[in-house]
């Protein structure tokens, strides 16, 4: 019993350390005054934060990534909601298949996904980062939004919507007036997943970069040539933003717990 307890504790500790140490390393090294990635930092300086804003590539790629992530979030949210309604509410042949297809982007290697989209898009003559990456990011985000919303809708008692209908609301109106507000935590969670999935993606996005590029790809090409803590500073800002968004979302609506 006691050994089992110790074992569980040590594993947990290793996991936590494994998760937190890289973050600490990144944050700490971003404050280095010298142009080296060193831990612990040799002092405290905001030089590299300033550097972010001097390099316009970071700002333009950040703006592009943000636009892409917002678009992908909106699209995958709507599509995920429609899929969730179909899977949870309707009985039709191929319902299980739909569920499996929805999850497939999680299983297919990203390299394969990026490559096949590249071939497909150039075959039909689409050579635009915006179009290609939008499609890719919606595909990548859809499994998450669908998954979370299926969970939320399954837990939502249909009698609530029926109550709205029988007391005079058209089914579609009942859905917007009663069902959507009730699954708001699920919607917010799904949106966060979708946003992060899109904003973070690197592997498959690389294949579809033509005229414009995303922040993760810009960061990667920067560290191939420069070796200063600018990227650590960017990462620190991203960590801060993520934490802030999650905290605010949790406070405002609460987040859906994704349990199987």
């Amino acid at each position: 019993m006691k050994t089992a307890g110790w074992f569980a504790w040590s594993v947990t500790a290793v996991v936590v350390v494994g998760l937190v140490v890289p973050l600490v390393v990144v944050v700490a090294s971003s404050f280095n005054p010298t142009n080296e990635l060193l831990v612990p930092p040799r002092g405290f300086s905001l030089t590299w934060y300033g550097n972010i804003f001097q390099r316009s590539v970071f700002l333009t790629s950040f703006r592009f990534s943000l636009l892409l992530a917002l678009g992908a979030t909106a699209c995958s949210l709507v599509m995920g909601l429609l899929c969730a309604v179909a899977v949870v509410r309707c009985r039709f042949p191929g319902r299980d298949l739909l569920g499996a297809v929805l999850m497939s982007p999680l299983i297919v290697p990203q390299v394969v996904l990026g490559m096949s989209l590249l071939i497909f898009l150039s075959t039909i003559g689409v050579v635009s980062s915006l179009a290609g990456l939008s499609l890719l990011h919606v595909i990548l985000a859809l499994p998450y939004t669908a998954r979370v919303l299926i969970a939320a809708l399954t837990r939502f008692p249909v009698s609530l919507e029926d109550a709205a209908v029988i007391h005079g609301a058209h089914r579609a109106k009942a859905f917007t007036l009663v069902t959507l507000p009730a699954i708001k935590p699920g919607l917010v969670t799904a949106a966060l997943f979708a946003f992060v999935t899109s904003f973070d993606n690197f592997t498959s996005s690389q294949f579809l970069v033509w005229d414009r590029t995303t922040l993760p790809i810009e960061i990667y090409s920067y560290i191939r040539t420069e070796n200063d803590p600018t990227v650590a500073a960017i990462s620190t800002l991203l960590i801060l933003a993520t934490v802030a968004i999650v905290v605010v979302a949790e406070r405002l609506v609460g987040l859906e717990t994704v349990t199987g």
Partner: peptide, 15 residues
Amino acid sequence: HRRNIGMVFQDYALF
């Protein structure tokens, strides 16, 4: 929604 029925559900179904 046009039948003009009032209904009380087993689980109340309050919004």
